[in-house]
Design a protein around this nucleic acid. Structure first.
Lengths: 291, 291
DNA sequence: TGGGCCATGAAACATATGTTGCATGAATCT
DNA sequence: AGATTCATGCAACATATGTTTCATGGCCCA
């Protein structure tokens, strides 16, 4: 099909060829260059009517550029515009040549990207989800692989002020046991990113079937565990340049969720938190804090 | 529960409608969600052949979602994906959602503070610590309370390419058992913030006595577990206004640490990572993604 | 001025596209 | 068990699509 050769952007070669084209073709070419998104989407005739030109002009333009027809030109534009395919893990770990200071620069880039990723988190969605958490009788939380750490953090923080209501899914027993326990007045939080673990998807399904409030924390809208979710909280997993997907965003989401849920809990939550911390201190879990 | 009234992304409403659809329509819907770019570009029949489904399914999917036909669904997807900028086509109105809700503002402030906290992490220190990790024969990692999640994430990521060398402290047995096992060519990572857990301090002491390389990830220079540490990586725990200490910074540090250690591992680490991932995939831990 | 050349628009063409009706088989209900 | 609904694949349909042909008109050169 498409031979992978040195690939000069179709738009560039279009623009550079423009001056040598007949008047009408120049107009059409300019229009295509200025509206390349629509060029890939709308039909040729549609473009023609908007551009105020004849449909045939587009075919002629394509041929003048060396393509076999408009379809081929459009295909080239489409491919040029295709979003970067984020293949996780090893695919992304391209050989990054190391210098002495390369490590430091790597860390800098990574942190910068993380910070930028945080900015794209939707505060509205988090607040909504927190309300759902607050309304729930019981809360179930699950996550696998590296997302397990996020799940555990969320569980821990929520348990600080709602110890009797929150637990991890599959904590002491097979997953289906917990799946069967889901009820309509429960909330279930599923955390994951591509590639998605089967169990998390099944957990999400079970929650949906039980009509429990389903909160999905994921990196993509199309995450299978997000299907039918009442709340979908997106974070940026690929924000870091290279290597493993980043969990900074997921952690930030989880923490914000817990924080809002805590405020919604009001004085009751606050009292419970103090109680919990007092108990921990009495068990001398802590070293004496320095004054 | 809480549903958005302005204009939910076509992808969102697709994903949330998926579970209530017949099997084949679900497959097709998932395919569209995972390949929404091609969905806007290629023709319906083309998609059908790639997805291994009947062309009619796409029409039916669109209708099931409330559209008049596939063309209308595709148009919606196209508009949703349009790059922000004016064009002669759609008169698209940017509906800025103004939600001056207190919760939302809280989340915003929090995230902003997190991002600012990331900027203060020292890249140099992380790179140095990563070199120590790389040089170590075995790596021990520990963390308590909410820091346990950080410890687990770091363990997980390091194990992806050094599975035989990395483990959590106290994983299967009392802590002092592991403490006694520390050797001079080991590295020990201790994660914590105020108020500090006793065990983590003891672990740090044991590591120090064994002359193992001690890497402390903490929020303060004066952290007791940081005494005598070879590497001290600071993060901002109190960055969030009120409530719980924030772990976003700690996570970012941990991830950066793992990333640098990975690059230091070179092709060997890369090969190991691919091997590990291959094994996970073979155990069908993952759901298949895209086609 | 006349003749060849070419750009341009309109209409005709073959084809690919989205859609719909129908038959089949599985699942559900009475 | 029988009746019925429904999901699903197949094939025919009307139509929109990209392409091509043809007639027109402007342009330059002899």
């Amino acid at each position: 099909m498409a031979q992978a050769q040195p690939k000069p952007s179709p738009l560039h070669e279009l623009c550079s060829a423009l001056p040598s084209l007949p008047m009408r073709l120049q107009e059409v070419g300019r229009f295509v260059a200025a509206n390349d998104y629509d060029a890939t989407t709308r039909s040729m005739r549609e473009l023609a009517s908007v551009a105020g030109a004849d449909p045939a002009s587009f075919t002629r333009l394509a041929k003048a550029l060396g393509y076999s027809g408009w379809d081929e030109l459009r295909a080239a534009l489409t491919e040029a515009r295709r979003p970067a395919q984020g293949s996780p893990f090893s695919g992304r770990a391209k050989s990054r040549r190391a210098g002495p200071n390369a490590d430091v620069k790597l860390v800098h880039d990574k942190l910068e990207a993380e910070a930028a990723g945080l900015a794209r988190i939707s505060a509205n969605a988090i607040a909504d989800a927190a309300r759902a958490l607050h309304a729930a009788n019981r809360i179930w939380i699950t996550g696998f692989r590296s997302c397990r750490s996020v799940a555990e953090l969320l569980t821990y923080q929520l348990r600080l002020f709602r110890p009797d209501a929150v637990q991890m899914v599959g904590g002491s027993g097979p997953f289906d046991l917990d799946h069967g326990a889901f009820r309509a007045d429960d909330a279930v939080v599923v955390i994951g990113f591509a590639p998605y673990t089967l169990v998390s998807v099944e957990t999400a399904r079970a929650a949906h079937q039980a009509r429990a409030a389903l909160i999905a924390i994921a990196d993509t809208i199309s995450a299978p565990m997000a299907e039918g979710a009442d709340h979908l909280l997106l974070f940026e997993a690929a924000s870091s340049p290279g290597f493993f997907p980043s969990l900074t965003g997921a952690i930030a989401v989880a923490q914000s969720l817990a924080a809002v849920a805590f405020t919604l809990g009001g004085t009751g939550a606050k009292r419970k938190l103090e109680e919990t911390e007092g108990r921990l201190a009495r068990m001398s879990q802590y070293t004496v804090e320095k004054g």
